[in-house]
Write a protein that binds this DNA or RNA. Structure first.
Ligand SMILES: [Mn+2]
Ligand SMILES: [Mn+2]
Ligand SMILES: [Zn+2]
Ligand SMILES: [Zn+2]
Lengths: 127, 127
DNA sequence: ACTACTTTCGCAACTGAGTTGCAATAAAGA
DNA sequence: TCTTTATTGCAACTCAGTTGCGAAAGTAGT
């Protein structure tokens, strides 16, 4: 049911997301917030924020979980279908504001789709 | 550099892939081959077969690694870009023979793409 | 078939992301 | 302030995947 109580830990985590438009890996978040909260807490808050429609998640190229802010999602209903980009050089991930077309597949019901593009980001190309 | 020696373990693993057109998760393979070879061996052979262009891999919706036979890939060069489907109900994954369009992204170089569709497979819909 | 060379394998120990159970803590409302 | 209950910290756990190394088994040459 999302976040029910705005605790100090929830605010701190939201602050981190407020400071960037990039996606953030859980590993990165746990490490960055190490002095402020337990890693279990990070996992649980991310879970609740996704459940509440404030964040969405995807699996990166190495199987690690990433989170990013939702833009157009109503609470507890993720609708904004967009691809993600992960840089092979620096590892960073971004949400892409690009429309994608999902192919229909005979005899299959498609409920969701994840498109992950891998390559080099702008920063890594310019150096 | 792919597989250099056709060992008993390599043959057994290829036999498993020869019996199905579906993708197989590493977890499943390790469990199925438990009496025949060590799990480290399974991981290493899969690695080599992918490197040699006989198999390709992708990350499933839960972050687990899956492998499937390559159709059009020359050895050590994976070219067949296609989406994968994973059933939310039974967990199985398949390669889809469907063309997908990869959007271009300004100021980014895209090297590869992974499209994962999630939903219900034919078997699970008919029951 | 024997030898030498090198790849491959088994094993056991390890790594690291993510989870669980439970007691302690702290929001939020009355 | 009191009560209720969501949330947190902690420690232990799970499990996919990796590593190092000595032993075993392909392979090519003789
Ligand atoms: Mn996104
Ligand atoms: Mn495939
Ligand atoms: Zn980069
Ligand atoms: Zn199914």
């Amino acid at each position: 049911m999302g976040v029910a109580r705005k605790t100090k830990s929830v605010s701190e985590l939201l602050d981190v997301f407020g400071q960037t438009d990039n996606a953030l890996s859980v590993v990165e978040l746990v490490s960055k917030l190490d002095q402020h909260m337990n890693k279990t807490t990070v996992y649980r808050i991310l879970d609740r924020l996704e459940d509440g429609g404030q964040l969405h998640s995807f699996i990166g190229k190495d199987g690690l979980k990433w989170y990013a802010k939702c833009q157009k999602c109503s609470s507890s209903h993720h609708t904004d279908l967009h691809p993600h980009f992960q840089c092979r050089d620096c590892g960073k991930s971004e949400c892409l504001n690009v429309d994608i077309s999902i192919p229909s597949v005979a005899n299959h019901r498609i409920d969701s789709a994840e498109l992950l593009l891998v390559g080099s980001c702008q920063d890594c190309l310019n150096q």
